[in-house]
């Protein structure tokens, strides 16, 4: 107690709790993660660059990012729709639907993977309906999109829903009393208020999709250059005991994930500031 960090706070336990937090964080997260970066120093930059830009790896980036982006866009549109329907309308079974939206958070990814494969393969419930139309989902890049849509589904719904619930009915009434029709009110008044939350949900779904492994490998077919995602490349290299190669690809993914994390934090800060600014004064 000789030296207090802040004289105006009298609560005990600061040193203990912060010390433990930092220790545990370092042991479980920071030191292990730094191992990946240390490992890549075994490679020269040219070797590193070569490893992470071979055609097969580049094809996997394209698939991973392309499919993640596609899935995140689907989730942004239908997530907004779902959030809207759940906050604005009543229909039978609404509470159950609301609870089930979180299923992708709770369902193990491997289970999701085999379930989606069963449903979307050519003899599955949905796959068999799509086949006559010439659409194949399972074991194609489209299957990757389906799996990534599944695992990103709750993000947009759960970020948009609370904002939609908090919107004042008065604002919409004001727009109506000024002569705006329902579509004008939605596009000019409601949607702008939802943008930060929508974008945050989109970014979260996108970030989650990029790293996803379990649900994808069952439905993707995993054909090199066609339907092989980047996390699978890492696993393949590991199984061949190519630790440095696996780590090099992992480092590329880590850097991208960290950039996304910072972008998401920025977005959340922006949206909370926008929402709180109007409450004050």
């Amino acid at each position: 107690m000789a030296k207090k960090h802040k004289p105006n706070n009298v609560l005990p336990g600061f040193n203990l709790s912060l010390g433990y937090t930092l220790l545990y964080l370092s042991l479980i997260v920071l030191i292990p993660l730094s191992a990946a970066f240390f490992k890549t120093t075994e490679l020269s930059f040219a070797e590193f660059w070569h490893t992470v830009t071979t055609p097969r790896v580049v094809a996997s980036y394209k698939l991973t990012f392309g499919a993640s982006l596609f899935a995140a866009v689907i989730n942004a549109i239908f997530g907004l729709l779902t959030a809207w329907v759940l906050t604005r309308y009543t229909f039978p079974g609404k509470k159950l639907v609301d609870a089930l939206v979180d299923l992708p958070f709770a369902l193990p990814t491997a289970v999701a993977g085999i379930a989606l494969t069963a449903v979307y393969s050519t003899n599955g419930w949905i796959g068999s309906l799509l086949e006559p139309l010439g659409v194949k989902v399972a074991f194609t890049p489209l299957g990757v999109v389906v799996a990534l849509t599944f695992i990103g589904l709750p993000f947009v719904v759960r970020t948009v829903q609370p904002v939609l619930e908090d919107l004042e009915a008065e604002t919409e009434e004001a727009a109506a009393s000024l002569g705006a029709n329902r579509w004008q009110t939605f596009s000019r008044v409601i949607l702008p208020a939802l943008w930060p939350a929508l974008l945050t949900g989109f970014a979260l779904a996108f970030a989650r999709a990029i790293g996803e492994y379990g649900s994808v490998i069952f439905i993707a077919g995993n054909m090199p250059m066609v339907s092989e995602i980047t996390p699978l490349i890492i696993i393949t290299k590991l199984e061949q005991y190519d630790y440095t190669g696996a780590t090099a690809v992992a480092v590329v993914m880590l850097i991208i994930s960290f950039l996304l994390l910072f972008a998401i934090n920025g977005l959340q800060w922006w949206s909370s500031r926008r929402n709180s600014a109007s409450r004050g004064t």
Binding site: E170, T171, A175, N181, R188, R274
Partner: peptide, 23 residues
Amino acid sequence: FQHYALFRHMTVFENVAFGLRVR
């Protein structure tokens, strides 16, 4: 409205212009 219900993402100008713009 009691709590004004101004559109918080629009400037004062755009708020006032809203009723004319949606015609």
